[in-house]
């Protein structure tokens, strides 16, 4: 297992290098950063523009800029925000935990909904429960998070006045207020993941439930709940694990929209405001962190997969 993990970590290195190059080049090749910083540049004279170009190092060749940036990044120095002049790492320290908390609860929400619903749907195939679950699933997949979020605000905040329409309080610092503030964003972000997971669990379970070993388990007289939860679900969970791992990236992407909708000061919102403010170092750091999160979640998925299915780690 140890060599398997080391092999996977080594495979990640070229991917990380490629990601850093893409993050850096995409921003620098598309537009002149000084023009972006100035919003058109009409209010500054050439003397000011030249001073800014030198100050931010934009007057150096691109490849030098890349290696300078990479060197600093490897030592944990992500630069300073052009806007606030704070170290980017400090900006991320404030924002990343918020996004991780929303993402974690959305992920848990999707699993809590998906596993029982998927199993029920598979076991009671063709029943009203299955049909209703399928309809809800299709709805959950079809509805964009921002629209669902808007509807939830109008229903639970404006009409019913049960939950606040915006803001963020950490569940870990104030559990009751925290759950109230994150409920709507978590549902908005987690519904499509829940629907996907549920579809996957249903189809995996349907495949597994007709296998010989399940029939044997039943023939041996095991209780139906034991057959489903212990024998069938473990084997049906392999594709679901892959899917759940891949959803980390989806959740990070979805956070950009949901955090803006609910005015949550997380990394997704930081990314949008930094793009609008042409704050290059922050945008680069946010994209890099998101890419690393996806790579890390893929690594964890592979490790869990290898643990659950021994065939994977020896291949």
């Amino acid at each position: 297992m140890g060599s398997y993990i080391i092999r996977r970590l080594l495979q990640m290195i070229p991917v990380v290098i490629l990601v850093t190059m893409m993050v850096f080049m995409l921003l620098h090749l598309t537009v002149d950063p000084i023009a972006l910083l100035m919003g058109g540049g009409e209010s500054l004279d050439p003397e000011q523009v030249a001073a800014l170009r030198a100050e931010y190092g934009f007057d150096k060749p691109l490849i030098i800029q890349y290696f300078t940036w990479m060197g600093h990044t490897l030592t944990g120095d992500l630069g300073r925000s052009h806007k606030t002049q704070r170290p980017v790492i400090d900006e991320l320290k404030d924002r990343l935990p918020v996004t991780l908390e929303i993402g974690l609860f959305s992920w848990l929400f999707s699993i809590i909904i998906a596993i029982p619903a998927g199993i029920l749907s598979a076991v009671k195939r063709g029943s009203i429960a299955d049909i209703a679950a399928t309809v809800i699933t299709v709805g959950g997949l079809a509805v964009p998070g921002f629209w669902l979020g808007t509807m939830l605000i109008l229903l639970f905040a404006v009409q019913l006045r049960w939950l606040p329409p915006f803001g963020f309080v950490s569940v870990f610092s104030n559990p009751i207020e925290g759950l109230k503030t994150i409920a709507l964003p978590v549902i908005s972000l987690g519904v499509s993941a829940a629907a996907l997971n549920m579809r996957q669990i249903r189809s995996s379970m349907l495949e597994v439930l007709v296998q010989d070993y399940v029939r044997t388990a039943r023939a041996k007289g095991l209780k139906e709940s034991r057959v489903i939860w212990l024998h069938a679900l473990k084997n049906a969970s392999l594709p679901v694990i892959t899917l759940m791992g891949m959803q980390i990236g989806r959740l990070a992407g979805g956070a950009v929209v949901i955090e803006n909708l609910f005015a949550i000061p997380g990394m997704g919102r930081l990314m949008v405001t930094s793009i609008l403010a042409s704050d290059f170092p922050v945008v680069q750091a946010c994209v890099l962190i998101t890419a690393l999160m996806v790579l890390f979640s893929n690594l964890v998925t592979d490790i869990v997969y290898g643990y659950v299915d021994p065939r994977i780690r020896y291949s």
Binding site: T150, I153, L154, A157, V158, R161, P164, P165, F166, G167, N260, L261, F262, A263, V272
Partner: peptide, 18 residues
């Protein structure tokens, strides 16, 4: 001063007394 970029959320915040 709260920074709320989404128009629907901003309206909801005013309407609900936040």
């Amino acid at each position: 001063a709260l920074i709320i970029t989404d128009a629907t959320t901003l309206s909801a915040a005013l309407e609900t007394g936040k």
